[in-house]
Amino acid sequence: MLLALDTSTPLVSVALYDDGIVDTATSERPMQHGEQLAPMITAALERVGAIRQDVTAVAAGVGPGPYTGLRVGLVTARTLGLALGIPVYGVCSLDVLGVEAADTAGEPVVATIDARRKELFWAEYDEQGQRLGELHVERPAAIAERLDPGRLVVGAGPQLYPEAFARTGAPERPSAATLALVVAEERAELVDPEPVYLRRPDAVAPGPPKKVS
């Protein structure tokens, strides 16, 4: 049984896959990934009558997404993998969003995840949900300028910046269920469970000490 989880958005998403999705859950509260993720995993196992040893692999969304929540998901996946002696796979969270949106719409899409600081993480996908080009982090207006105006935009962008995008659609965020399917059906590249930050930490080396006299 595959345990899939994603913490790249304000909501925690968890799914169990065993020759098909057997359970999915989304957190009740936004944020507080650290408080909600572990209980959601045990609750999911309980609902399907499984025990921890039934889990044979873990898959986690590696972002990009706000860092604190993202790290909760990745350290959980890696440590669970260590404790259970099972493999841990990473999948780009934008790829998960891109696959689901392209499948639903049957056309090329742009997937977006909130990057805070008035920016979005984003990437373009073809009608099969295959990523075209790099992952980016930019302001919505800058993204819109680079896109064909008719291009369908999904994810957090349409909710947060409706004025920036002409054509918008669902889903609003990547789901662990799609993540599990993407892994099972090899629809996206499997990567190490390393976070995708796309930004350096904000820190500047200090100048000389301030004078006090």
Partner: peptide
């Protein structure tokens, strides 16, 4: 904290 919880679960 998340790592500790994962160990507790695992």
């Amino acid at each position: 904290v998340a790592a500790a919880k994962a160990l507790s679960v695992g």
